[in-house]
Write a protein that binds this DNA or RNA. Structure first.
Lengths: 204, 204
DNA sequence: ACCTGAACACCGTTCAAGT
DNA sequence: ACCTGAACACCGTTCAAGT
């Protein structure tokens, strides 16, 4: 005698809704996350979800923001500022890649910056601490973030296509085929990061 | 007495449909591109559009692929391989930024690679011509493409937010505010590109 | 404050049919 | 080959109402 009363408190809160939404995105992709599906899985009327989260767009932002908080907990490790920055970008890349489905969602809604923001702040402070001047620090930080964002995009797409069981590229020809099958992304990422760091923080 | 016959040839072809779709995306954004809206603007039954393009997804791909062809016509200019590669990445960045709405669409559907593909091939051949060995050429090409893709993403988002009349970032605090207001992206892009080029094609 | 029911104005897509 | 009409199975969102 517990589940047939008319409509008592459902006892739902925003966090539970976001958590269930994350589960859907992670198991079935962002397209499967509809307000109606979500509410059905929560055993609740769609409008209940609206009451708690406003609308679909802010639900999506909430999902990304929540994942960003997880990633934010990172303490940069290393004995020199340069090492700590390098550690930060590597960890960010790994974390984004690990939460692939949410990251893809972030790209779909144009909210990569939410995912990367904590890292940006951490890197900027490292440069400041190392005495790099304001403009140089800004240039380098923006470049490093662009590299992280660029690499994760490329790598996430590859992962998606691989998961779909697609050939890397249907129209492959010479040079392009070599590139789509290229699997030294770790090395390429290192190359880019180290090259940029050399420009602002030469290895002592 | 010309417009009330039952249903003669509409005389439509795939290219005209894609062209009209591009117009919608460029003037009202990708969300405004619905199969029904598109067919209405073409003065045609929705199913006519389906007959020509298959479904919405392949229409979106066709839009991106067509823009990619425009960008592909680029002949790299410069007297050295290094200069030609640098020219290529700069032109690609400019071209992507110029077709902002289609580029955003490409990111939404995960098809940035279509936009960048011609550039990838051109750069790879330059490296080959310069005698850079296969692995190094691959590493550098992948890095350069990631930088182009990373920077254009970041810059397109900024443009979007500016167009929306939004403040750069509602939650701005110290370091982050400095970064969102940072407007030396040209210089940061140069820094990243030159740094990577230094690693594989040291300036003679 | 928290939740439901019913409805509005859309979607993408398919199917059978016309010329 | 090219096109229409009608329908299916959904959407996001809002509004009035209940407790």
């Amino acid at each position: 005698m517990s589940s047939r009363k008319p409509h008592p408190r459902a006892g739902l809160d925003r966090d539970e809704i976001v958590a269930e939404a994350v589960r859907i995105v992670e198991s079935e992709g962002s397209a499967a996350l509809t307000m109606r599906q979500l509410s059905a899985r929560l055993g609740v009327n769609p409008n209940t979800v609206y009451w708690h989260v406003g609308n679909r767009e802010s639900l999506l932002s909430a999902i990304v923001a929540q994942k960003a908080e997880d990633i934010a907990g990172v303490q940069l490790k290393g004995t020199t500022p340069r090492a700590r920055v390098a550690d930060g970008v590597h960890r960010a890349r790994a974390a984004i890649f690990e939460s692939a489905s949410v990251a893809v969602l972030a790209f779909e809604i144009g909210a990569e910056h939410l995912l990367i923001r904590p890292l940006a702040v951490a890197i900027a402070s490292e440069f400041e601490a190392a005495g790099v001047n304001g403009l140089d620090a800004g240039l380098a930080t923006v470049s490093l973030l662009a590299v992280v964002s660029g690499f994760t995009t490329v790598e996430l797409r590859r992962k998606e296509r691989a998961a779909d069981g697609l050939a890397p590229d249907a129209l492959s020809d010479g040079a392009w085929r070599g590139l789509t099958e290229f699997d030294h992304h770790d090395a390429a990422f290192d190359l880019a990061i180290e090259a940029i760091l050399d420009a602002v923080l030469p290895a002592s």
